[in-house]
Amino acid sequence: MATLTVDGKVRLERAFAKARAERRLAVVVYLTVGYPDRDATAPLLRAALDGGTDIVELGVPFSDPLADGSTVQRASETALRNGVTLDDCIREGADLVRERDAAVQLMGYTNPFYRRGYERLASDLRAAGIAGVIVPDMPAEESAELDRSFAPSGLVRVDLYAPTTPDERLARLLPSARGFVYCVSLTGVTGARDRLGPDVGDLVARVRRHTTLPVAVGFGIATPTHVAALRGVADGVAVGSAVLDVIGRAAVPDRATALRDFVRSLVEAGRS
């Protein structure tokens, strides 16, 4: 149980430091808990780590995921049909931290977290060794309550910034960023795309003027080619819909292997 004395935020920092030391991009993998079925999640998460995943984002399914494209929407609907709850997500995270000492975050919408109560959420995450949350419908303007509950436990809420975020907003908000900064690569919802968003390099450069934290790029990142194109731009990449697509396409017995190999290809593409 010694690992539990290390808090989740330290695991995040360690994950980026390790990738940097290995001269590659950190790979953040998103997986909707309970997709395609409840029993699939645990082996898939381990396969993702075996493939070299640095940080795991556990997707908390929500009935109305308004920042997500069709892939995550469908995964979310499937997970809810499978009866997945926030407790299940925290339990998966706790297992992964205990067994693999992994850097784990929850990614989910405001309402399930709000319903749980931010204080209780904080103590549950802390007990599980989960680093914190990413909440796509909670901009800095609405985060004060959650931040107050998270601060004493050292938990982090990772902010998202978008190509539409103006410089003055970055200057105002980035000083309070914790853990790492998540840049949305495109103007739109999640989902695999053929090409990288045209504004991503500009956004990362604008962000770096206001922070020394590691910068990860997500939304739309789907292929090793995308990852390779971000070498020298970002510190990490976050891949979600493409991961779900790989799992969804594979035959049931091959899912874990397909995911491990896909993650490995992303990790390799990020080496300089």
Binding site: P136, M138, P139, E141, E142, Y161, T164, T165, G188
Partner: peptide, 21 residues
């Protein structure tokens, strides 16, 4: 001016839309 009615209201939106609102 922040659009709150007591503790209700607000702007729980993706960052991309914050400048637009």
């Amino acid at each position: 001016t922040t659009g709150r009615y007591g503790r209700f209201g607000g702007q729980y939106l993706p960052e991309t839309l914050m400048p637009a609102v």
